[in-house]
Design a binder for these strands. Structure first.
Length: 308
DNA sequence: CGTTGAACCTGTTTGC
DNA sequence: TGCAAACAGGTTCAAC
């Protein structure tokens, strides 16, 4: 469920309820969702103060101070997986099935973590290790400048859709918004990433910013599971143009939307608006392709390859 | 190294 | 209606 807009919406909803508050008590109903030691988790989290919250890619990071017995600072990292929910409610609220953790707050409220499919994870790490934890991920997709964005596609032959999903390349996009972004940018999802020349790369970059900001404004996309921190549904599901619309007509040209599988994930696109390559743009045919010498300098030069 | 596909889970929808 | 298969917003790890 949760991609960048959904996670951002959850963090924005939780922040005013949690910042500066203390966690009085914690209980794990399903220990398997925790990575690392359970005793340490309980010892550190119970009594800790939540100094601040942030989103990194699709992860939620709680910066914890305390507990009183230790000077160390910790980060509680939460990933919502596919069906995870993190929300505040009254202790009197009936427990829903698949609620895996409860945090009692000094406000008298609770924060609960619920996740039917159990792909979500909680993890506690020392604050000093936070940057190392995220080091192998790509840059934040809404913060990366265009040059850095373009560099990520250099020398990559995988389908552009697969790269957009790969959090080690750029972090934040998932299956829904990758399809939406490629539609807006008019790029076929199976296009090899290093075949995108500058104009299409710029369209892709602009589409990402546009679609993600619009989705954040709409508080995300709700199908069955996703809810905001207040338990409300998002609104972007009414504005999806290709995702989940196989066989329905393209909002731009009325051609039926098609679905293909890439990296074992569904990709939805308009075959007319998103052709494999634009007409009039020469493509090296297989028979006439010049054998390219291995060129280590290409990656270092960044976007130059895309301008050819 | 880059890329693909299976595995991890439960719930819902689809098709016979 | 009943049942099985297919599919679902993500990540990780093994294998090629």
């Amino acid at each position: 469920m949760p991609e960048l807009p959904e996670v951002e919406t959850v963090v924005r909803g939780l922040r005013p309820r949690l910042r500066g508050r203390r966690i009085c008590r914690v209980r794990l109903h399903q220990p398997l969702i925790l990575r690392g030691r359970r005793t340490q988790f309980r010892r550190v989290v119970a009594g800790a103060r939540i100094a601040r919250l942030e989103r990194r890619g699709k992860f939620i990071v709680f910066h914890l101070e305390g507990p009183p017995n230790g000077a160390r600072r910790w980060c509680l990292i939460v990933h919502l997986g596919m069906t995870g929910q993190l929300f505040c409610c009254s202790p009197r609220e009936p427990y829903q099935k698949h609620t895996h953790a409860t945090f009692w707050l000094d406000t008298g409220k609770q924060m609960r973590f619920r996740d039917p499919r159990r792909f979500g994870r909680l993890e506690l790490i020392p604050a000093a290790r936070l940057d190392a934890y995220f080091a192998h991920f790509g840059p934040e997709i809404l913060d990366v400048p265009f040059a850095g964005f373009a560099r990520r596609f250099a020398g990559r032959r995988a389908p552009v859709k697969s790269l957009l999903l790969n959090q080690n390349v750029l972090r934040g996009l998932g299956n829904i918004y990758s399809d939406e972004v490629l539609f807006v940018a008019r790029i076929h999802p199976a296009t090899p990433a290093d075949r995108l020349a500058l104009p299409r790369l710029r369209r892709l970059y602009a589409a990402i910013q546009r679609v993600l900001h619009a989705a954040i404004d709409a508080e995300g996309t709700s199908f069955s599971n996703y809810v905001t921190a207040e338990g409300r549904l998002g609104n972007f599901q009414y504005r999806l143009r290709v995702y989940g619309r196989e066989g329905k007509s393209c909002p731009r040209c009325r051609t039926p939307i098609e679905r293909i599988v890439l990296s074992a994930r569904s990709s939805h696109f308009c075959p007319r608006c998103q052709p494999r390559q634009r007409r009039g743009q020469p493509r090296p045919g297989p028979a006439r392709r010049r054998p390219r010498q291995p060129d280590a300098g290409a990656a270092a030069r960044g976007v130059c390859h895309a301008a050819r």
